[in-house]
């Protein structure tokens, strides 16, 4: 069970308090109707799935309830850092 630092609580908590929420920095288009089918498909379905450094989202669901972003290495499972939702990609 990994430990995760919640950037809102500024505290490191057991994984059991968190839920994974997919790749980070995939913003919903402001006007989806303006997107081509191909662009909409890219937004909906296409994910980076990297081997290594991955920007991803977690939710401190059994804590402060906030979604936040993290950089985790998908090979070692180690977190590099976590940061608040809305902050630029790190």
């Amino acid at each position: 069970m990994i430990l995760i630092h919640c950037p809102y609580c500024d505290d490191t908590r057991p994984e059991l308090e968190f839920a994974y929420a997919g790749e980070a920095h995939i913003a919903r288009p402001l006007d989806p109707s303006a997107l081509s089918d191909a662009d909409w498909e890219r937004y909906l379905f296409i994910r980076a799935n990297p081997k290594g450094r991955h920007n991803e989202r977690w939710r401190h669901v059994h804590g402060c309830g906030r979604f936040f972003n993290a950089v985790r290495d998908t090979v070692t499972d180690k977190f590099e850092l976590t940061y608040k939702a809305g902050e630029p990609r790190k």
Binding site: A19, A21, A27, R28, R57, R59, V61, G65, R66, F67, A85, G86
Partner: peptide, 13 residues
């Protein structure tokens, strides 16, 4: 609730 929180917190904060 999780889905709505997701949109509220991250798309329309």
């Amino acid at each position: 609730l999780n889905m709505m929180e997701d949109y509220l917190q991250t798309e329309w904060p």
